Amino acid sequence: MFAIPTLTNASRRQFSTTKSVNMKVLLTGGSGFIAAHVVDILLEHGHEVITTVRSQEKADKIKSAHPKAGSNLDFRIVEDIAQENAFDKAVQSLPGLEAVIHTASPFHFNVTDTKKDLLDPAIIGTTGILKAIKAHAPSVKHVVITSSFASIVDGSKGTRPGHTYSEKDWNPVTLEEAVQNPSNGYRASKTFAEKAAWEFLEKEKPNFTVATMCPPLVLGPIVHYLNSLDGLNTSNQRVRNLITGQNKKEIPDTGTYIWVDVRDLALAHVKAIEIPEAANKRFFITAGYFTNKEVCEIIRKNFPEYESELPGKEIKGGDYPEGGLYKYDNSRVVEVLGIKFRTLEESIVDLVKSLKSVGA
């Protein structure tokens, strides 16, 4: 097993002198749920942002939503991140690039070929961006990669009462298990991609440091100009299903019982390129526990207009498991990045408001 590199005092001084404001930043997957919020925060912090998107149409939508960004927001088209050398042209075209935030990776279970649809885009996309940076962007000092709690959790252990998950944990999923079903495939894609990043850092010894973000379920407001009710990210679909009457008879199992608001996660990504102490660290980013039943009651309390669509108070399901639940340690993201997490109620209220804006 590889070891995540640690900074020596000399290298820490090197990265500590890197300016933390007004950086030139490449963001991959700019039209994604998380990335759209990363764009907002990067611009708010005064950075120059170049984001990759799969089409000019996506670029135009993002550009029109940020009319004040001017020359601080630009785009590069990368149609398929699973292709070898997919990021080379984009990186080569950006002299003076200082940081890269890599969020582009699939998160869905609607797959026909686990390797082609999940594993390849995640793994090849991650190694591809790292290779491109090393080969063509020697000025880059900070790389942040969106990973997942899926790379931490051991799904075979169930709810694992008594265990405390932290950055020290790795999902032990194998390639053989990965191709058995889409759920295994997704967890494996995040695990293998993150491991590939740390292995690259260990073997290639590039000029840049790496930080990985490992969130569980990501909730919070969507950006209306990129989303519709039919095109939601997987995490927020459960809330859409509640307010559109799809769960009247039974509240679905929660599945993953920890969560984070997308805006707090986006801020963590940006802080990880601004704070030298974030270099070469994994961050397990969670605000705490939640259940689908709690989400339902928050909607009932704050949006009485959806009462007829929600499951009645007597409806069972969606609660915490009877046998207990794992604990979590999110101290690193609080202490190193200084993140103060939003409450579940604030996140769900803002999410439902954003869903209403696209027709819910």
Rank of each mutant, 00 (worst) to 15 (best):
Met1Phe: 10
Pro5Ile: 14
Thr6Asp: 13
Leu7Arg: 10
Thr8Lys: 09
Ala10Gln: 14
Ala10Lys: 14
Ser11Arg: 15
Phe15Asn: 09
Thr17Phe: 05
Thr17Ser: 15
Thr17Gln: 13
Val21Phe: 09
Gly29Ser: 09
Gly29Thr: 09
Gly32Met: 10
Ile34Ala: 00
Ala36Ile: 09
Val39Phe: 08
Ile41Arg: 12
Ile41Asn: 10
Glu44Asp: 09
Gly46Tyr: 07
Gly46Ile: 13
His47Gly: 01
Glu48Lys: 07
Ile50Trp: 07
Val53Leu: 00
Ser55Ala: 11
Lys58Pro: 07
Lys63Ile: 14
Ala65Arg: 06
Ala69Asn: 05
Ser71Ile: 11
Ile77Ala: 09
Ile77Gln: 08
Gln83Asp: 06
Glu84Ser: 14
Glu84Ala: 15
Asn85Ala: 14
Ala86Arg: 07
Ala90Asp: 03
Val91Pro: 02
Gln92Thr: 14
Pro95Ser: 15
Gly96Thr: 12
Ile101Cys: 06
His102Gln: 12
Phe107Val: 09
Phe109Val: 10
Phe109Gly: 05
Asn110Pro: 04
Thr112Leu: 12
Asp113Phe: 08
Asp117Pro: 04
Asp117Trp: 03
Asp120Met: 05
Ile124Cys: 06
Ile124Ala: 04
Thr126Phe: 01
Thr126Met: 07
Thr127Val: 15
Lys131Gln: 15
Ala132Leu: 04
Pro138Ile: 13
His142Asn: 13
Ser147Cys: 12
Phe149Thr: 06
Phe149Lys: 02
Ala150Val: 08
Ile152Asn: 07
Ile152Tyr: 04
Val153Tyr: 06
Lys157Met: 13
Trp170His: 11
Asn171Ser: 02
Val173Thr: 07
Leu175Glu: 15
Val179Trp: 01
Val179Gln: 01
Asn181Met: 10
Asn184Tyr: 11
Arg187Glu: 09
Arg187Ala: 09
Arg187Met: 13
Lys190Asp: 02
Ala193His: 02
Lys195Val: 05
Trp198Glu: 05
Glu202Gln: 14
Glu204Val: 14
Lys205Cys: 03
Lys205Ala: 06
Pro206Ser: 14
Asn207Arg: 11
Thr209Tyr: 02
Val210Tyr: 00
Ala211Met: 02
Ala211Phe: 00
Met213Gln: 14
Met213Ser: 07
Cys214Asp: 13
Pro216Glu: 09
Ile222Glu: 00
Ile222Gln: 01
Asn227Phe: 03
Val239Trp: 02
Arg240Pro: 05
Lys248Phe: 01
Lys248Glu: 08
Lys249Val: 11
Asp253Lys: 15
Asp253Leu: 14
Asp253Met: 11
Ile258Arg: 05
Val260Ala: 02
Ala266Pro: 02
Leu267Gly: 01
Val270Asp: 01
Lys271Ile: 00
Ala272Ser: 12
Pro276Ile: 02
Pro276Trp: 02
Ala278Cys: 10
Asn280His: 13
Asn280Ala: 12
Arg282Cys: 04
Arg282Glu: 04
Arg282Trp: 03
Phe284Asn: 06
Ile285Tyr: 01
Gly288Leu: 11
Asn292Lys: 04
Ile298Ala: 03
Ile299Cys: 03
Lys301Met: 12
Asn302Glu: 11
Pro304Asn: 11
Tyr306Asn: 01
Glu307Asp: 11
Glu307Leu: 08
Glu307Met: 06
Ser308Gln: 11
Lys313Thr: 15
Lys313Arg: 13
Lys316Gly: 08
Tyr320Ile: 13
Tyr320Glu: 08
Glu322His: 05
Arg332Cys: 01
Val333Pro: 03
Val334Tyr: 06
Leu337Asn: 01
Thr343Gln: 08
Ser347Lys: 04
Val349Gly: 05
Leu351Val: 07
Val358Lys: 04
